[in-house]
Design a protein around this nucleic acid. Structure first.
Length: 460
RNA sequence: GUGGUUGUAGCUCAGCUGGUUAGAGCGCUGGAUUGUGGUUCCAGAGGUCGCCGGUUCGAACCCGGUCUUCCACCCCA
């Protein structure tokens, strides 16, 4: 009995057009990665579970796909945990592998394992799928691609500056204008928490603050209170909600607010330099903004934090994110190795480009020339022509059987082929081929031995 | 993980307070058109109504469970 096939929740098949479009995005981003001097690496889909666990916070651990051990995995499990149905305690015993959750932690692991072969500073890029056991939504999948560029072994603000440029160039190259690179700094957030007397509650403070543009000031304050931050602290944070003006003006106000905080002032100074130099270099497709509420992925960022918002009017979560993480490799035993990196969300960029109609039409063309098959002798001549056109880099094909012309032309039409070549009995006798322009319906004859004239015309 | 939502032909969807053989448009196949697609006309094929169970004389329709879709929360690319 035939079963109805399906694929796991949150995963997708990609049709030829979709693959062409995804490859287009990837190739443009990759081109920029390489222009900026990054080198590609790849890592396995699976990592050891303990490489990943504990690196993304409690929430992250929950979203990691664990791979069940092969064989009789239950025999090795602790009977007491089994009886107690303690899934949390049992998981590490029956699953020693897990699907990668992002590309940054595997990269950190890679750096530590290959530290002796790597020339530092090491700039690598990586384009691979990652998996998260999240509930799917628009632009949120359980299997999706990240395109990451990171540099380790180099401190200094030049890196952050370069990543802003890299974002800008990549989006420019995709024709995606109007994106906003939102920037914040971990040290500023720490400093704020410190001066308002909520230093212990940094995470709670930032998680609530992150929701400001979504739920408004009042509810943010309510949530902070609910998360155990004192009334007095919340009141001292009031200036945060009144920040306005240019990044420089906002940073000026923060400087006043943070005058008592050493780290806070460091953060302010870094961002002042970053915004000033970004302004000097100029941007083509993106705008930069200081967003003090930006706090995502705070678990491992220690310096600048980036997040890219789609152009206004496009409803989509962030299409990129990144930041500086000074200590990432230390959890794997390699100290004093600072890193900065950014990530492009391929699947979301796809949805944005699609919604804005920014994909080039030529991506849909899978064939430039299609030859109708009239029978053995004619097909032989057609195949020679097809091979000649292919040698010029044109996408050319011959229908595999001498089916009815109506069927063959219909096929060409459905495939969106712009030119259809006919070599029938008459053309063969005359040493010619007939080209039909499928858009205008016009037909022209060419001599078979002058096929380059036709090829030249197509490639003009 | 919490709350809600969706599922009927390949696709987009109708289908009345439960009542004979579940419909439409588009698409598909064949023909009009044995050297021509996209227009037109004619004919045809195609459905375990997501799945499992329950209520009922009778279920696409009501109830429960499950899977899936989308949405909000959590979190995030």
């Amino acid at each position: 009995m035939a079963q109805k096939p399906s694929i796991p929740k949150g995963t997708r098949d990609f049709s030829p057009v979709e693959v062409a479009r995804r490859n287009y995005i990837i190739s443009r981003i990759r081109e920029q990665f390489e222009r900026f001097g990054f080198q590609p690496i790849e890592t396995p889909a699976m990592e050891n579970t303990d490489t990943l666990m504990g690196k993304y916070g409690e929430e992250g651990d929950r979203l990691i796909f664990k791979v069940l051990n092969s064989g009789d995995f239950l025999s090795k499990a602790d009977p007491a945990l089994l009886d107690a149905r303690d899934a949390g305690g049992l998981a590490p015993q029956i699953s020693e592998k897990a699907l990668r959750y992002d590309l940054t932690v595997p990269f950190a692991r890679y750096v530590v394992m290959h530290q002796n072969e790597i020339e530092f500073p090491f700039k690598r890029y990586q384009v691979q799928p990652v998996w998260r056991a999240d509930r799917p939504q628009r632009g949120r999948f359980r299997e999706f691609y990240q395109c990451d560029a990171d540099v380790v072994g180099a401190s200094g603000l030049v890196q952050e500056l370069e990543f802003v440029q890299l974002y800008d160039q990549a989006f420019h190259s995709l024709g995606l204008h109007g994106v906003t690179i939102k920037i914040n700094h971990r040290k500023i957030l720490s400093g704020i928490a410190e001066v308002i007397g909520a230093g212990e509650k940094l995470t709670e403070f930032t998680v609530a603050l992150d929701k400001l543009d979504k739920i408004g000031r009042e509810k943010v304050e309510q949530e902070m209170e609910g998360r155990g931050i004192s009334r007095g602290s919340i009141e001292r944070a009031a200036p945060l909600f009144e920040l306005s003006g240019s990044p420089a003006e906002k940073l000026g106000a923060l400087r006043t607010l943070l005058s008592e905080s050493q780290v806070g002032l460091e953060g302010v100074a870094e961002l002042e330099a970053l915004f000033e130099q970004t302004h000097e270099l100029g941007l083509s497709a993106a705008a930069v903004a200081l967003d003090i509420t930006l706090a995502r992925g705070l678990n491992y960022y220690t310096g600048a934090i980036f997040e890219v918002a789609a152009p206004e009017g496009v409803q989509m979560g962030s299409i990129g994110g990144g930041g500086r993480y000074d200590d990432l490799t230390s959890i794997f035993g390699l100290k004093d190795m600072s890193g900065v990196g950014i990530s492009f969300g391929l699947d979301r960029i796809y949805l944005v480009l699609e919604q804005l109609g920014l994909f080039p039409e030529t991506l849909e063309r899978s064939l430039d020339v299609f030859c109708v098959n009239f029978g053995d002798a004619e097909a032989r001549a057609a195949l020679r022509l097809v091979m000649q056109l292919r040698s010029r880099g044109l996408k050319a094909d011959l229908y595999p059987s001498p089916a009815k012309l109506q069927k063959q032309f219909k096929y060409a039409d459905k495939r969106g082929v712009p030119f259809v070549v006919s070599i029938g009995e008459e053309e063969l006798k005359a040493g010619q081929f007939m080209v039909k322009d499928m858009r205008s319906g016009e037909q022209h004859q060419y001599a078979l031995n002058a096929w380059t004239t036709f090829a030249d015309r197509l490639q003009a």
